[in-house]
Design a protein around this nucleic acid. Structure first.
Lengths: 203, 203, 203, 203
DNA sequence: GATGAATGAGTGTTCATTCAT
DNA sequence: GATGAATGAACACTCATTCAT
């Protein structure tokens, strides 16, 4: 593989990723991608075989890196509070780059629910098991009120993801511009932590 | 306008609503809508001018009724806790019917952010003002921890909407079938109330 | 179905038939067909669903009428000589109109041999049985030399079809123009009969 | 020209010939040819300029060798019967290797009838002249019935070529498998000779 | 009001061909 | 000589839209 090839391959994927996940063009056509990348439409087929295969490639890769990120947070010996605090950081700081990824995932999952299973291997199970144990300890110690693992995780995901997911709607409703919304999102780290543990985020 | 005319108009809108918001066919074609409604494709143009105009009409109407619903909850003399409790009820019970509406809204808003402003008139301002006052009283009385009105509302919306919005993803992650997920959603009423007020939902 | 619809449907089929079987454009594109018929390319899909379905329709219909023609020749009480004489007439006179049909059939058959079976139902068996009996009588009576039914039929088909099938090649080899070749073909009726029965065609 | 160059040139032509005439892939793409030959697609253009030029080259060469073969049969002092017997042998035995050549020729000729003239030089005239004389002698001697040279040659070609040409169709109609059809073809040598001379093939 | 027929613009994809190396 | 990258033209097909009736 020459350098040029790698660059073009990567360029196409980058462009697709940007259109799909950043700009929210869920149905971005090959023409749109080619125009944005400044290449010929046929090259997409040369490198990826078909629009769908490019699509799957980009989705899979993004999912992998995301899953790895999450796993690396939870698969440590740290306390639950530290883990959650990191999770919030990652989701709010990093995922600003691809605000539509979650949205995208939901739309696609609605069409082909069996696809996620390929993208999310058994790691999920292990993560849940770890968090489950730590959560039980917190509840037993009376540090947080009773809650099931499922609702705990969904609360966490909801509080972190929703403001990203629904950004265009919320930005309009709350009457915030780009900058104000960014500020709002950074404030949310404390707010989410507080909503989860009912106490202030340390330091 | 004859009765038949009204009926066909309404039938088309109903069908479009179902396909768009219930089944998640964001890109439902005029043919698909016509087939589902059992009418001729050209009639959609006869009544609505174009696919996009039908789309906007349906979206606007759904938004209006939703806004009205929300307003009627908040524009009373009830306590904040009762209002929030009703809000949770409405969002979780009623909005199960159109699970993809939120998702849809977000996707469309991403394309044309200026559109929402037409759909959400100045009512928004009045609602916020009312809730704002009540929220300040709660905080002042030490009944809930300090939180801005924006974060309070976003938390509430996140905890209610996210499980609906992300249903396909969560259903897969949590390994729940249709029935189990419905059960999970109904449990959430208590969970959300608790997360917001840090106390159990009365009765 | 309106008159216009039938006309357009028929027009498309006619045009396709002409391009496929008469002009030998085995790979005629939908554009070519549409241009030749003076209609929009998309209409072909409107009426036939796809290029292949149009193709199959036209092929099947042409085959049916041909099979019927052959059957009506052999399924009588006439003598073998009369039947063969008619067969020669039909193949040479009528099939001049679609000189590439046979060729076409062969090319397509090479790709999908299972297709012919659908087009040629069990009629074939009955025809062969009838001819078989009559042929045996001729041989037993010493009227023609010993020959199997298979070779007899293949000889007949070869002598009739080949000059049509290979028209472009033969026309060039034999140095004949359109008119001369047509004359040559009409002479062949006697020649074929003679080659089969080793005696002159009556009257 | 280096040895390697010659080898690659020849390899490409061989591969094309096989795909075109043996496997019947009339529309074989440059990619298909390159893959089959194990070379780069661009090399076809390097050596032959374009797909069409490769095509023409291969067709021309195949035609030349075929014409030479025929000429060498007829340009001897042997009797007509021996010549015809050899002709039948060559066409039936040898041409089994390229069953689609004839078919191919016909299809291509239909598109560009002027092409054959370049491929079939004045040899044709000489061959016909020789056979013509011998045929007249046979007729004069009452050894065969009256027939023109054109019909005689066309009968001969028809009886030999048609079973090869129409192999896929005939195989289906006659219900023969590969092996049975091969057997059938070998029987045809006697059958054709008999149909031409109305007597058994010697030895 | 309602329909089938017809169209033009656009989609993903294929392919022969060219070009830089 | 040989290769991978890149392109333009064409293909079958889809779709919203228009039109005549």
């Amino acid at each position: 593989m020459s350098l040029g090839q790698l660059e073009t391959r990567e360029l196409i994927k980058e462009t697709a990723r940007r259109l799909f996940f950043q700009k929210g063009h869920v149905k971005a056509t090959t023409q749109e991608i080619a125009d944005e990348a400044g290449i010929n439409r046929a090259l997409i087929h040369y490198y990826f075989g078909s629009r769908d295969l490019l699509f799957e490639k980009v989705l899979a890769e993004t999912m992998w890196s995301r899953t790895d990120e999450i796993e690396s947070i939870f698969a440590t010996n740290d306390s639950l509070r530290i883990k959650i605090s990191r999770f919030i950081d990652v989701f709010i700081d990093n995922h600003i780059d691809f605000p539509y990824l979650e949205n995208f995932l939901i739309t696609e999952m609605a069409k082909a629910p069996e696809r996620l299973k390929q993208l999310q291997p058994d790691k999920r199970g292990r993560i849940t098991a770890i968090v489950y144990r730590q959560l039980e300890e917190e509840i037993a110690a009376g540090l947080i009120g009773y809650i099931t693992i499922e609702h705990f995780m969904v609360n966490l995901m909801a509080l972190c993801n929703y403001p990203l997911l629904a950004m265009p709607v919320l930005q309009t409703i709350l009457g915030m511009d780009e900058k104000a919304y960014r500020e709002f999102l950074s404030e949310r780290k404390k707010v989410v932590y507080r909503a989860i543990f009912n106490e202030d985020l340390p330091n």
